[in-house]
Amino acid sequence: MNAITVTGLSKRYGETLAVDGIDFSVPPGGTVGLLGGNGAGKTTTIAMLLGLLIPTAGRITILGHDMAHDRFAALARMNFSSPYVALPHRLSVEENLRVYCHLYDVPHASARIAELAAELDLGGLLDRPAGQLSAGQKTRVALAKSLINRPDVLLLDEPTASLDPDTGDLVRTWLERYRAQSGCTILLASHNMAEVERLCDMVLMMKQGRIVDRGSPADLLTRYRRDDLEEVFLDIARDRQSERSA
C-alpha cells in the first residue's frame, strides 16, 4: 500500500483551476519532490494533502485513511513544515514544542524535546522566545516541531527557503538521516533544484495545475539531456522541450 495516493485531484477557485486532475502516489519511505514555478499548484496540492483545503474533485488517501472522511487519523501520523507558517513568537522554543507534544499526544514530552534538541542542536535555544531566533534557528525549530510526533508522512513546503547554504545543507543532511532512520515518507515542494536532486527519489513537475512530467532526477536529466534539474525545470517552464527535441 502506498503511503500517499492521489487520484484525479482538482481545485477550482471560481474561474481559476489551481490544480487540474493530478494523480500520483508515493510509496512508504519514498521522497517525492513537487517542482514548479510560482502558481503551478504546489502549495495548493500540499494544503489539500493536509486537509486545510477541500478539493473540488478527486481523492486523497494517506496511510490508508481517506482524507475526506478520516483526516484526523492520518494527521496524527503526519506533520508539516513551512517557512510561511510561524510558531507563536512570544513563547519559548521549549514551550512551543511542548504545545505540539500535547496536540500530537506525544508520550514523555520532556524526553522527546530533549532528544530533538540534541539532534538539531537546539539546546541553547530552548529558553529563548521563538520570535528572537534567526532564520536558520527558526527553520531548525520548525523542523523539530514537524518531527515531534515521529511522523510517518512529512510534508515540507520549501524547507530551506531563505537559508544560507551552510544551514540549508545542515537541514538537508538531517532530513536524509531522519528518513534513513525512520523510513518516513516525504513530500517536498521546493524551488531549490539541487535540494530536490539530492533528496528525492522521484520528481513531479507541475505547471498550471497539472503534472506535466515525472520521474527520478536521473531519468529526467537523461530524458531532457541536461546536466542539472534547474535546466530541466527551465525547459518545462519555458516550453523549451520541443525545441531541444527538434
Binding site: 486545510l52 506533520n79 508539516f80 507563536p88
Partner: peptide
C-alpha cells in the same frame, strides 16, 4: 485571534486537533 496574529493557525489546523 492570537492564533491568527501569530500566524500559527496553519500548524494548529494540520494537527489532529478537532
Amino acid at each position: 485571534l492570537e492564533e491568527i496574529w501569530s500566524r500559527n493557525l496553519g500548524h494548529v489546523f494540520v494537527s489532529p486537533l478537532r
